[in-house]
């Protein structure tokens, strides 16, 4: 049984100019121990699809799906109180902007201990002890002292490590990483990716790696789903996709890899395909 199973998910937003369809009927599934990469350029609906399954979209979002289950439990009909027991514990999520994702008014220690207390019911001393262990596990130096820091006293990379520590605090079955390295310096990007992959290997959790960077995909994923304008264009295991992309949009994404750059300018998707034709190609 798949860990997360999504079939025909659509998400649309009520806007002042009418309904805006951000996700137009996608299927996704992740198994235990599997890393699924979801790629696609900015605005293609990657974040919205994941936030929808976590139940984190605002009320203006209309969500429909034929199936949306986590570990066999129906996420669509689940009451909010039940959902809150699962998210943050069995499914957790980290985001693109690590500093902004942490609350500036509380110490990072408070923000991780809060999760341990509410999901695992640990007492004060055990929370502290576990928080120190977790900070150590994600490679934060001097964890005991760092727990009393505020986010603004830490770098972006350190904050992302804190976010990862919070995300793995309750040993989740699934970790959704929404462009976890996009906002970081290149050298730090590599460290964070390595950390995520080693944690994934150690714990055997499933992982969804959202990115628009094919380099990240190559380094992390078992399987890849390619999204464009709210639709899934194709899905394949990572070797097949890189060797033999079936879809022109995927080919375009691959050629946008910096290693393939010619001249002084990176190629972009529109250099390779007529974007208008993709709309019809992607329709099911």
């Amino acid at each position: 049984m798949a860990l997360l199973e999504i079939r025909n998910l659509t998400v649309s937003f009520e806007t002042s100019t009418g309904l805006f369809h951000a996700v137009k009927g996608i299927d996704l599934s992740v198994q235990e121990r599997e890393v699924l990469a979801v790629v696609g350029e900015s605005g293609s609906g990657k974040s919205v699809a994941m936030l929808a399954s976590m139940g984190l979209l605002p009320k203006t979002a209309k969500i429909t799906a034929d199936v949306m289950t986590f570990n066999g439990r129906d996420l669509l009909t689940m009451p909010d109180t039940e959902r809150r027991k699962i998210i943050g514990r069995d499914i957790s999520m980290i985001f693109q902007e690590p500093i902004a994702s942490l609350n500036p008014c509380f110490t990072v220690g408070y923000q991780i201990e809060e999760v341990l207390r509410s999901h695992l019911g640990l007492n004060r001393a055990d929370c502290r002890k576990r928080a120190v262990e977790l900070f150590g596990a994600v490679g934060i130096p001097d964890p005991e002292k760092r727990l009393d820091s505020y986010p603004h006293q830490m770098s972006g990379g350190q904050c992302q490590r804190v976010m990862i520590a919070i995300a793995i605090a309750c040993k989740p079955k699934l970790l959704i990483a929404d462009e976890p390295t996009t906002a970081l310096d290149v050298t730090i990007q590599k460290q964070i990716l390595d950390l995520l992959m080693s944690l994934q290997e150690e714990t055997g959790m499933g992982m969804i790696m959202i990115t628009h960077d094919m380099g990240v995909v190559a380094e992390t994923a078992d399987r890849v789903a390619v999204m464009y304008k709210g639709r899934k264009m194709e899905e394949a295991d990572v070797v097949t996709l890189f060797d033999n992309p079936s879809h022109s949009y995927t080919k375009a994404l691959l050629s946008a890899l910096p290693e393939l750059a010619t001249g002084d300018r990176l190629p972009t998707v529109s250099d390779f395909v007529d974007t208008a034709s993709l709309q019809t190609e992607g329709a099911r």
Binding site: M54, I87, E114, H119, I166
Partner: peptide, 22 residues
């Protein structure tokens, strides 16, 4: 609409904690 409020909700915190504390 700040990111850290979304984080608090993603952590499964109750609406009371999300609004009243974070």
């Amino acid at each position: 609409s700040e990111d850290y409020v979304r984080t608090a909700r993603a952590k499964g915190m109750s609406p009371f904690r999300v609004v009243g504390i974070h």
